[in-house]
Design a protein around this nucleic acid. Structure first.
Length: 286
DNA sequence: AAGAGGCCCTGATAGC
DNA sequence: TGCTATCAGGGCCTCT
């Protein structure tokens, strides 16, 4: 589910339910995520109230009472499921019956008074980190660049990071140390809107092209959030609602289909860049 | 120091 | 139908 818009949708759909609610306990079924889940996580979260939720890049951050924090990264296949009481199943665990809840890979369960939140992740590329204070969280996040929707994301900083780079702009957009939050889908979509060929090197870009990237990275991500994110495969928000942005893809997953731009009849191409699928229009993106 | 590629893992789908 | 191969919204680590 995992690029910036999908994490934002998870945050938005979860917020009302968990804000100011207390985590009674957590159940850890499998500690083997991308990084091993903290042995003492249960003790650290037990009876902690959630003060606020926010998103940084592709991280969902839970602020807990006494300035503790929990950061969740969804990797490639992580999802959260909100399950309310009254949907209770009769299994031995405290699971609740829900058609959206997969039967396998429910690695973590956050137990609240009236509901549970389940972290599911088949590929286990996601991870969860606990932070004892604001400083350690900030320190951890400081190794990432700002994301395009951050109010402090400034054009001159973005330009400086790109203009001397000897790597292609697609990989630049995926580099979380240059700009965070963009993944494989939105990199292709942003490049199409910016009319930039994904293979062009950062140092070859003209000023107006970097301006376009700065502009459309915001526009494309914001629009995706407005549409509820992209539900290719199985992304849903925490109560099982699908996003609609996949219907608006201009290039992603559209290989051999005709370019959407008026007066262009080229077919969308699919190429591999660093072994990841990349989609673009050879005619519209120079 | 920066860039390219391998690798972690499971499941869905395509192709034979 | 049933096997195998390929491909997935990510990012860390290693090698050059």
């Amino acid at each position: 589910m995992p690029e910036l818009p999908e994490v934002e949708i998870v945050k938005q759909s979860l917020e009302k339910s968990v804000k100011y609610k207390r985590i009674l306990t957590i159940i850890i079924n499998n500690r083997n995520l991308r990084f091993k889940v903290d042995k003492f996580l249960q003790n650290k979260l037990k009876n902690k109230k959630i003060i606020s939720l926010y998103r940084k890049a592709k991280y969902l951050i839970l602020e807990l009472e006494n300035k503790k924090f929990l950061a969740i990264h969804f990797g490639m296949s992580g999802t959260l499921h909100l399950l309310r009481q009254g949907m209770k199943n009769n299994t031995n665990l405290s699971f609740y019956k829900d058609k959206n809840l997969p039967s396998k890979h429910n690695h973590l369960i956050f137990v609240f008074d009236q509901f549970e939140i389940i972290y599911n992740d088949p590929r286990r590329f996601g991870f969860i980190k606990f932070f004892e204070n604001n400083i350690s969280l900030k320190n951890y996040l400081s190794s990432y660049a700002l994301d395009p929707l951050d109010i402090n994301f400034k054009f001159t900083d973005f330009q400086k990071k790109i203009e001397k780079r000897n790597k292609n702009i697609k990989n630049i957009l995926l580099d979380q140390k240059i700009v965070s939050g963009i993944g494989n889908i939105y990199a292709s979509e942003i490049l199409f809107s910016s009319k930039i060929n994904p293979l062009i090197l950062g140092k070859k870009l003209k000023l107006y092209q970097i301006k376009n990237l700065y502009k459309y990275s915001k526009i494309v991500l914001k629009n995706a959030i407005l549409k509820g994110g992209s539900s290719i495969r199985d992304f849903k928000n925490v109560v099982g609602k699908k996003g609609l942005f996949q219907k608006e893809f201009k290039v992603y997953h559209r290989q051999n289909e005709t370019c959407n731009n008026k007066k262009c009849n080229y077919k969308i191409k699919k190429i591999l860049i660093s072994n990841r699928s990349t989609f673009y229009c050879k005619n519209c993106q120079k």
